[in-house]
């Protein structure tokens, strides 16, 4: 079943065509990768999908419903969750409080905070942050902040999860842990779109990859096909050999 479809989406920032007539669709249960050079428009696509930025033109359909004009919190209630490329924890709240925000407001009707304590703790256990639940974000390390991003998104009970460069700034061992976590999340039936520069992660996780360049789709296919494509090597992989290995 097709869970998400974006048709001919456009977004300009002044003269910059951040997203330029992009279309793709996502099947329920898959892990789709989006790769491309810096500034290709990958994060902007996520912003369009979660509703933080309105499209200039085009259409977004989620679960058969046109959500193009829907506010971000309503898209969250429908089941779109996301993380941010630059971790954005709520600094006044503890780790548990951060997750509780998502647990309380992830539905169309907010529930009482006292009622989500257990659920929030379960989500934290899932990402292995239980021991840090009473710490404040300022006390966390980068890998833990990334885990908190995932925990918060998971606590909203998403059907589609958008992960923006989870591995950036992590050591290989830390990458592996998050990689397993994403596999587990997907096994539970959550569809994933992944923006990633670490090619090893893309190869291991993604059934299908979309390559973006200058806001457009350069090509699309399985990992081997797109990484073998000459245009992709020229536009992206060629300059990023160190990462690509």
């Amino acid at each position: 079943m097709e869970i998400l479809k974006i048709e001919n989406a456009r977004k300009n920032f002044g003269g910059v065509k951040a997203v330029d007539g992009l279309s793709f669709s996502v099947q329920e249960g898959e892990i789709l990768g989006i790769i491309g050079p810096n500034g290709a428009g990958k994060s902007t696509v996520f912003n369009l999908l979660c509703g933080l930025i309105p499209v200039d033109a085009g259409r977004i359909v989620f679960l058969g419903e046109d959500i193009t004009l829907l506010a971000p919190h309503k898209r969250c209630h429908m089941g779109i969750g996301r993380t941010f490329q630059i971790c954005q924890p709520f600094k006044e709240l503890t780790v548990l409080g951060n997750v509780a925000v998502a647990a309380v407001f992830g539905h169309s009707k907010p529930v009482h905070p006292g009622k989500v304590k257990k659920y929030s703790e379960e989500v934290l256990a899932k990402v292995n942050l239980s021991s840090k639940k009473d710490l404040y974000p300022a006390q966390l390390t980068t890998p833990d902040l990334k885990l908190l991003e995932i925990a918060r998104a998971l606590a909203t009970r998403p059907r589609l999860l958008l992960l923006d460069e989870m591995m950036a700034g992590l050591l290989p061992g830390e990458c592996d842990k998050i990689l397993d976590l994403i596999k587990g999340i997907n096994r539970e039936g959550i569809t994933v779109i992944l923006v990633e520069h670490v090619m090893r992660v893309v190869r291991e996780l993604c059934q299908r990859v979309i390559v973006m360049n200058y806001g457009q789709k350069l090509c699309e296919g399985c990992y081997e096909d797109v990484t073998g494509d000459e245009r992709v090597i020229e536009a992206y992989l060629g300059q990023e050999e160190t990462v690509a290995q």
Partner: peptide, 9 residues
């Protein structure tokens, strides 16, 4: 913005 993405109206 982050609050709204997590469902806060």
């Amino acid at each position: 913005s982050v609050a709204s993405v997590l469902g806060v109206n």
